[in-house]
């Protein structure tokens, strides 16, 4: 059974306690984000800030200027939305070494519904200068992305899903900020995806193969900075692109890919993502169907060329 990505987050935090600079901040959601795991092993560097996300981000900013590495955690909608001004004006403009982690995002938040389902967080964070945006696709990549974020000096937004997805990466997987990854090679079309959608992209590519369609699958965890070179390369090779994300199609991965290709190598692109709507309540799998975020929907996009 693959691990839920938020569980990996909690476990990785515990591992990181050996680094005396790490401070974990929580806004009363540590049981859900798994940040509380860190409190169990390192209470002296765990800060319960209460339901005050703006204050949490400010405190993180202050800590970072005194040589600590603060990790501010809550749901994506609150850390990128409620505290946007603090993130933009203090953390990003100051280029501060603050790590912002949202563990609940997209429609996979599920039953809590629209108010808790960030569908625009990537767009928000990507639009802010200096901000690095990482969206891991499975348990191993989650662990590696957290470690890369800590090793990097500067502001990072990590979008970590609350759910489990099939494992894509082996134990020897190395992740590098700014680098994408080709998971499958094919010359008919390239499916460029991020986060929990990457395993669905692989599933789609396998089904397409049975129909004689050879699809590349490219996983982009580092949405910003993005691997321009790789994206142009696959566009040249496949001439058709489908982007896939559990996020609004406005401003997310699809937009990032289009911004590059429209200048450097224009090819037709189809977008699989949330179509300018809010989420709603329901089981994650039901919602992924409703918002057209399944392998079937990826295949339909591929066949629409």
């Amino acid at each position: 059974m693959p691990k839920a990505m938020r569980d990996v987050f909690g476990e990785t935090l515990c591992e990181l306690k050996e680094n005396p600079k790490i401070v974990v901040l929580d806004a009363d959601l540590g049981s859900a984000t798994r940040a509380l795991k860190f409190k169990d092993v390192c209470p002296e560097r765990f800060l319960d800030i209460g339901i005050a996300e703006q204050n949490m981000v400010g405190i993180a900013a202050g800590l970072s200027t005194c040589d600590m590495i603060p990790i501010a955690t809550t749901f994506s909608v609150f850390i990128t939305g409620r505290a946007f001004d603090q993130v933009r004006n203090t953390v990003a403009h100051g280029n501060l070494n603050v790590k912002l982690v949202g563990t609940h995002n997209g429609v996979c938040v599920g039953y809590d519904g629209a108010t808790h389902e960030a569908v625009e967080d990537i767009a928000l964070m990507r639009s802010v200068p200096n901000m690095v945006v990482l969206v891991p696709a499975d348990a191993k990549e989650t662990e590696m992305a957290i470690k890369a974020a800590i090793a990097y000096k500067g502001p990072v937004y990590l979008r970590i899903s609350r759910i489990a997805v099939p494992d894509i990466h082996g134990d020897d997987y190395k992740f590098c900020i700014g680098k994408g990854e080709v998971l499958r090679d094919g010359t008919d079309v390239a499916i460029i995806s991020t986060g929990i959608m990457t395993s669905r992209a692989i599933e789609a590519a396998e089904i397409l193969l049975k129909d004689g369609v050879h699809a590349s699958v490219v996983n982009i965890c580092s949405i910003k900075p993005i691997d321009r070179k790789l994206i142009v390369e696959v566009a040249k090779r496949t001439k058709r692109i489908v982007t896939v994300e559990e996020h609004t199609i406005i401003g997310g991965l699809g937009s990032a890919v289009s911004e590059i290709l429209s200048v450097e190598w224009p090819v037709p692109i189809r977008f699989v993502g949330i179509n300018d709507e809010f989420g709603t309540s329901g089981a994650p799998e039901v919602l992924l169907e409703k918002y057209k975020l399944t392998a079937k929907d990826i295949i339909r996009a591929v066949k629409s060329f």
């Binding site: 900013a61 202050g62 800590l63 603060p70 603090q86 004006n89």
Partner: peptide, 25 residues
């Protein structure tokens, strides 16, 4: 200048972060 400011209302939180760091260290 120890901290960039301009968007009002944020300085005290940031000060708390610095003061907490001093205590931790």
């Amino acid at each position: 200048v120890d901290m960039s400011t301009g968007s009002l209302g944020q300085g005290l939180s940031i000060g708390c972060g610095m003061a907490i760091a001093a205590h931790m260290q």
